[in-house]
Amino acid sequence: MHIDIKAASLQQKRQAYKHLAKRFGEDRPASRYEEGTLDLAPEANFHYRPLWDADHELYDKTRSKITMKDWYALRDPRQFYYANYNITRAGQIESVEHNFDMVEKRGMLTAIPAEWVERITFYLLPLRHYEWGANMNNCQITALGHGTALTAPTCFAMGDRLGIAQLIGRIGLALASNNETALNAAKDAWVNHPDWQGVRKMVEDSLVLEDPMELFLAQNLALDGIVYPLVYGAFSRESDRRGGAAISFLCSFMNEWYEETGKWVDAVIKVAAAENDENKALLKSWFAIWEARAVAAFKPLSVAVLGAEAGAQAIADVEATLKARAAKLGIA
């Protein structure tokens, strides 16, 4: 029936919600990302102190030492809101499915030499526990971070990390003909093998961090900044050489995801660091601590997978790349 009404009487009264127009400085149409993100979290007049944290309000900027005049400055360059986030991931997961089908049809996993299957079990499969730590950390930031611009993307990252943990789990099942054996062996390595203990300790330590911004930097920049290039870069290349190219193929989502997500992580850190000198100094000191820990934790694994010399070289390369990235963000 819409054609019955004259354009003249369909004059719009406003273009956007007022809190958005106020931010824009003009009444212009807002994107769905802006509508679904900006000024969404409660800001004032809280009723009760949390029973679990009487020192803070329910939503409280002072949970972090980082200060921002406007926490909504920490934008996500991907402009994710729930719908385009899920649609993006669903598309990617379709190619993952396709890859699994192909690997299975062509018997690509059966072609991997037995001793390299064991190496994969040792270096890749325990990472599902690392991912599970990353899931919890992003979940923690979602619960206690400030401003939806930060906490909506961390919620998406929380989902991503569960997805990646389960993807690694699927690889573990595929490698063991759908038995749990490989995943159990990997969990045993995660809990007991000396080469993994530095990583596990680091992850457990991250789980008790109280400052959501320190947690953000530690997990999403410092730890991931070592793990992803090392495992899905250097280890994958080694896997290709050892007849395990199918594994790199199945992990292509991780590389794609890391590249995409890194842009968001960088944007958040960069803006927070540029806000004021205190922020910059804090982020710098946190980065120094967690980057050094990540390097030390992953060195034994790098050596175990690539050998003494190549292993040391790989971790040095990865560290150099991460430090260069941090320098660009103003926190090296």
Binding site: W132, G169, E180, L183, V191
Partner: peptide, 17 residues
């Protein structure tokens, strides 16, 4: 079964914290 393996197996008992 598949769900159990892909989820319940993720946890471990922490010892460093």
């Amino acid at each position: 079964e598949r769900y159990r393996i892909l989820t319940r197996g993720l946890d471990w008992t922490p010892t460093y914290q």
